[in-house]
């Protein structure tokens, strides 16, 4: 009696598709002067618990790729599957944290923003949504700001709300498009560390976009480097836990490796 379901689970695991699979994905934009291919023939998979970082210089199609995984754009070729099912539209199973500060609803308070997302995205009743929202806002350090409107917050605090909102919905996949790019260096570091902690505590699966090698090593378990115009896969690096500590020799070594293999000019500064 007890064995059958467990066995079924094992068999299911053996054949179960990866959490996310990109299969020869190309993405293009129609422009006035013709079709612009932003991403070309990209394939990779992502399994549960991984944090994959897409790294590449500006304009190499990182945001484009992330938006397509989010369901906001359609690939011009290939397909993207989540749990084996083709992605056709945006949904709360893939919560995106954007780079821009205007991703919060200005007419709702901090608490209202997260609560509303839970009411709509997870169909929670109001009371329960509020409870969950408070929990997550406390976890990102915003307990004292639940009743503030977004325009009264600093940029870093707005990103914290967006992060709380994304985590609160417990998505299958977290999508982050340079969420800290518009912050000052000090705040960015702090937010990277705190995000890392949240991800590890929750065992979240994430696809993270950045153009900073330093940030990629810090937050990712695996890094995929893209080349620009059009965006293609260049190289892949696994980040071991011991390489993730800033200031260690391993960190510096990995940084150097990525710099060398991805960017032709080793002197080029990539922050």
């Amino acid at each position: 009696m007890n064995v059958a379901p467990r066995l079924a689970g094992l068999v299911g695991d053996a054949v179960s598709p990866p959490l996310l699979a990109l299969d020869h994905v190309s993405i293009s934009y129609p422009t006035r002067d013709g079709i612009l291919t932003a991403v070309e023939d990209v394939s990779f998979t992502l399994s549960a618990g991984e944090r994959l970082v897409l790294l590449g210089p500006s304009g190499c199609g990182k945001s484009t790729l992330l938006r397509t995984v989010g369901g906001f754009l359609k690939p011009s070729a290939g397909e993207i599957r989540l749990h084996g099912k083709r992605i056709v539209a945006p949904g709360p199973d893939r919560m995106t944290v954007f780079q821009e500060f205007d991703q919060l609803l200005p007419w709702r308070t901090v608490l209202g923003n997260v609560r509303y997302a839970l009411e709509r995205g997870k169909s929670l009743p109001r009371g329960q949504a509020e409870e969950v929202a408070r929990h997550w806002l406390t976890r990102v350090g915003l307990k004292n700001f639940v009743d503030a409107f977004p325009h009264t917050l600093s940029g870093g605090m707005k990103q914290r709300v967006a992060i709380a909102r994304a985590f609160a919905l417990e998505p299958a996949l977290l999508l982050m498009d340079e969420p800290f790019a518009a912050l000052d260096a000090l705040t960015r570091r702090q937010m990277q560390d705190e995000l890392l902690k949240l991800c590890e505590e929750t065992g979240s699966t994430a696809l993270f976009v950045t153009h900073g090698i330093d940030e990629a090593i810090r937050v990712g378990t695996r890094i995929i480097a893209l080349t620009p115009h059009p965006g293609r896969l260049a190289a892949s690096f696994d980040v071991l836990p011991e390489s993730r500590v800033r200031g260690t020799a391993q960190f510096a070594e990995l940084e150097r490796q990525i710099q060398q293999s991805v960017f032709a000019d080793p002197e080029a500064e990539y922050v």
Partner: peptide
């Protein structure tokens, strides 16, 4: 309406 705000809304399945 800024595109980011639209996407934030559609992200919730609206």
């Amino acid at each position: 309406v800024p595109p980011t705000l639209r996407m934030a809304g559609r992200n919730l399945g609206l």
